[in-house]
Structure formats: structure tokens, C-alpha cells
Write a protein that binds this DNA or RNA. Structure first.
Lengths: 144, 144
DNA sequence: GTAAATCATACACATTTACTATGAATAGGG
DNA sequence: CCCTATTCATAGTAAATGTGTATGATTTAC
């Protein structure tokens, strides 16, 4: 029941892009330094986000990445699902649920449905914009 | 973010013990047949539940296992935590949370705390007794 | 005494995780 | 046009985890 580094890094990566959104592309190297995550691993993760259409890539020197849409348009759920796959706690519930021959007699599935709803309820209503606000609040704490 | 077979089987195992709680010990062999789970794997899982004090074991011929307490005394969370470990979605939140040097600057942790609360809110409220009721409802559906 | 059961470990194999490595393709600046 | 900084694509790899099997010892009802 753990979220892997891939998903966690993807969140930090997207938040980094949202934070350093100046109009200039942000390079993997810069993100790597700020977030202290291997460049090569970040490349792999951002490739997923790129294919999903979440970021725009600019190749060549002075290249990098930018968010395609506003931070408020990206939920945590969207990002985690791309990198982690379906967030349902078992394969027999959720969006791409698989068949199970025990289904008709199975009562535990009700637990998993409730869990699935609870998880989605959290991740589908937090956006990158929310996370940016949290960051701003953190800074205030130090300033005051 | 998946619950492993070990945890899922543990739930079915405990529910089976709750359902067939006649005063006589229930053998692994019987549970194995009813739940269609390997005897040997069940032995391993119930060993965990036994060490946790959730079941009482009676050795020797005609032996088996019984719940130590009433079904309403066992939450899904108790059972899953024994078999799956802490249910927190990352190691830096929850009961046995580990240190992280990025903690002070990290905002994603707020997501994980909310997730953790949501997950616990579900699993700590459902008991074996609830699951037995769900089973009874299922039977009614067929009878009517 | 024997068969039926639990108990304790060790082993095995597949999958997933978390990266690292290699090199090709692209493009800006001199 | 060349050099360098970057993304892009794919393969490899070591460790951990998941999902069981296998072997055999121990206990106890009959």
C-alpha cells in the first residue's frame, strides 16, 4: 500500500515546474539539483508526463519543459495515475477493474470500494495550485 | 498502492473463522477448501494472526483455530496492519513514521497525511461483524 | 500408535522497484 | 557549419518484494 518513488517524484517534478514557471523552459538538470533526484530517473518520469500531454518539451540547447496548462488544472490524482497506474487498492475495483470469479460471493470487495472512494476523494481534489499555496504558507511561517 | 494477497487472504480467513464459529476449532484444510487458497500459504498467514493474539490455536488431531474475541472486536485495519504492515501511503507519515531530511521544505507530505487519514477512516471503522452482516444481506438477495 | 493437525524454516521463482548506461536526435550560439 | 546543451529512446541491472512450495518437526485425539 505504498506510493512508489516514481509517483512521489512525479508530484515534486510537476510542482517544481509549476513553481518555476517563468515562460522559459525548465531543464531536467535544474529540477534534479533543486529536488535532489537523479537526472536520468527524472528523464524517465517526465517522459511519461510528456506522453500524457501534461508538459510541453523544448528540445536542444536552452531547452527543457513547461506545464501545458495552469497548475490548478492538474490534480494529484491525474499525476499519480499516470506514474503509478490505477490507485485502486485491488484490481477488482476502480476504473479499469478486472473480472473475478468470486465476485458474487465476495464481501471484502465492499471494503475495497470504500477505500477506493476515500483515496480518490483525496487525490482528485488537490491540485498543484493548492500545493503552491501550501508552499507560500510555509514561507510565511519563516518570515513572521 | 495495492493490497497484497497476504492481506486480502487474511481478511477472508478471519471472516471465515467468524462465520464458522461453532465452538469447535476450524482447520486450515477446511478454510483452504472454502476460500480456495493454498493450505500452506494460509498456514503462514494465520501464524501471523496467531502471534498477534487474534486467534487461538488448538494443536493435534481435530485441532484448528478459533477467534479469540467477538467479530465486532476486529477491525479491517487491525488485520491488514498485521499482514501488510503500516497502511500509510509513504513511510514518512503514519504511526511508525520515519525521518526525512526534506521534511521542513516538503509540501507533498500534506497529501500523504490526508491520504493516510482517509485510508484509516475506512479500515478502522469496518469490523468482521459488519462483513458478516453484508454476507447475510447477500444471502437475502438470493432468497427473495 | 497412528493419523490429523499445527508449527517452524528454508527455498524458489516471478515481478516490481529504482535506478544506471549508452547513445541517438535536436537545436541554439558562435 | 560545428560544438555543446539538451531531450528522447531503449536496454540493462541489482535489490527488494510478492507469492507461494517444500520439508520436516511437534502435538494430541482417538
Amino acid at each position: 500500500m505504498k506510493i512508489s518513488t516514481k509517483g512521489r517524484y512525479a508530484l515534486r517534478l510537476m510542482l517544481d515546474l509549476a513553481t518555476y514557471n517563468t515562460g522559459e523552459p525548465v531543464s531536467i538538470k535544474d529540477i534534479s539539483k533543486r529536488q535532489d533526484i537523479s537526472e536520468k530517473y527524472l528523464e524517465q518520469i517526465i517522459a511519461i508526463l510528456n506522453k500524457a500531454g501534461f508538459v510541453r518539451s523544448i528540445r536542444g540547447a536552452q531547452g527543457g519543459y513547461m506545464l501545458k496548462k495552469a497548475p490548478s488544472e492538474y490534480t494529484v490524482g491525474m499525476i499519480l495515475r499516470q506514474t503509478e497506474g490505477d490507485l485502486a487498492p485491488v484490481s477488482c475495483v476502480g476504473a479499469d477493474s478486472e473480472e473475478c470469479e468470486r465476485r458474487s460471493q465476495c464481501v471484502t470487495v465492499r471494503i475495497y470500494e470504500q477505500l477506493n472512494n476515500a483515496i480518490n476523494g483525496v487525490v482528485d481534489h488537490i491540485t498543484l495550485a493548492d500545493m503552491m499555496e501550501w508552499q507560500a504558507e510555509k514561507v510565511e511561517q519563516y518570515v513572521i
